[in-house]
């Protein structure tokens, strides 16, 4: 079991090195005119040289990569090309915003999804059909359109919730929550339907399994078959799916943050991409991968607890 976890951690480490490396060289290839785009067309040659020198852009690409890597290991992601601030100072306050959004979405699609899944697995046929129909639609509605519709209905029309923007919880916890409701729903929606479907399918599989047949025939109650055996056996596969959905939601957060103008990592990522601000993007990709790694480890631990076969191995 520990060996398994170790192997997975090693894989995560590979991810942590490979992705920033790819992004670095991708960006480096297109970053010849950074000085020009930051300083403007009127900048003189000497201004540009000075700019390049301060940021180390006069060095060859591979040298820049290794000096970046050396700093990154110590949590120093270099200076932003556009603002010359340390990248970690730019990203730190934004991390909290992104985490509020992503963890919120994770909670919503896990809890609501599993609830719907259980209801449709155990309820009557009509409930099952409705959940089926809703999930076909739910999985097809793209999150950016859903976001716009949510804004149209709840912000513009009903004026219940703010359309865009973010309030720090230390300023006003109530407004903070209100500013997160719509983004979290938009981000979680596709995940809810996927979790519901997986929960339902796994529970039905368990209810129809040979062991359920044996247990039922030997006197186990229907309640226990559904709420003890089926639910317990659905847990591990559902948790695995949660991991996949989470990675998807992380990507989705970039778009959702831009729609709702949340000052998180995602909106910074887009802005920095348009400005070719390599160090900031590098920093964000490292943050994202670290989040993925942490979630993967948590899921591995959960699976170890949930699956007796893994636990014993």
């Amino acid at each position: 079991m520990l060996k398994n976890l170790g192997l997975r951690l090693l894989g995560s480490l590979v991810l942590l090195i490979v992705v920033p490396t790819i992004t670095f060289f991708l960006q480096g290839a297109g970053s010849n005119n950074i000085a020009r785009s930051v300083l403007g067309l009127t900048a003189t040659k000497s201004q540009i040289d000075a700019f390049n020198h301060t940021l180390g852009l006069d060095q060859p690409l591979w040298q820049r990569y290794f000096s970046w890597l050396g700093g990154a290991v110590h949590g120093d992601f270099g200076l932003s090309y556009t603002t010359q601030q340390p990248v970690q100072d730019i990203l730190a306050p934004r991390l909290a915003v992104s985490l509020s959004l992503i963890v919120g979405a994770l909670l919503v699609f896990t809890i609501v999804g599993m609830l719907l899944g259980v209801i449709s697995a155990t309820g009557n046929k009509i409930v099952g059909r409705v959940v089926d129909a809703v999930s076909t639609v739910g999985i097809a509605v793209p999150n950016f359109w859903l976001a716009v519709i949510l804004i149209a209905v709840f912000a513009v029309n009903l004026n219940l919730l703010p359309a865009t923007g973010y309030v720090d919880p230390s300023d006003d916890p109530g407004l903070w929550l209100a500013s997160l409701v719509l983004p979290v729903i938009a981000l979680a929606f596709a995940g809810i339907t996927a979790v519901a479907k997986q929960t339902r399918d796994q529970m039905l599989l368990s209810i129809a399994s040979p062991y359920a047949r044996s247990l039922r025939a030997n006197g186990a109650s229907e309640f226990s078959l559904v709420y003890k055996h089926a639910l317990r056996n659905a847990a591990a596969p559902v948790v695995t799916v949660l991991g996949v959905i989470f990675v998807g939601a992380l990507s989705g957060s970039v778009i959702v943050e831009n729609i709702f103008v949340l000052p998180g990592l995602g909106s910074q990522a887009l802005q920095s991409t348009l400005q070719h601000d390599v160090p900031v993007i590098q920093g964000i990709s490292v943050y994202f991968i670290i989040i993925v790694v942490i979630v993967n480890v948590l899921i591995d631990i959960a699976n170890t607890i949930l699956n007796p076969k893994v636990r014993a191995a």
């Binding site: 992705v19 790819i22 990675v247 992380l250 970039v254 990522a269 991409t273 993925v292 993967n296």
Partner: peptide
């Protein structure tokens, strides 16, 4: 396991 959008943005 890669959040694909990181790569796509680049």
């Amino acid at each position: 396991a890669i959040p694909g959008i990181v790569i796509l943005l680049m």
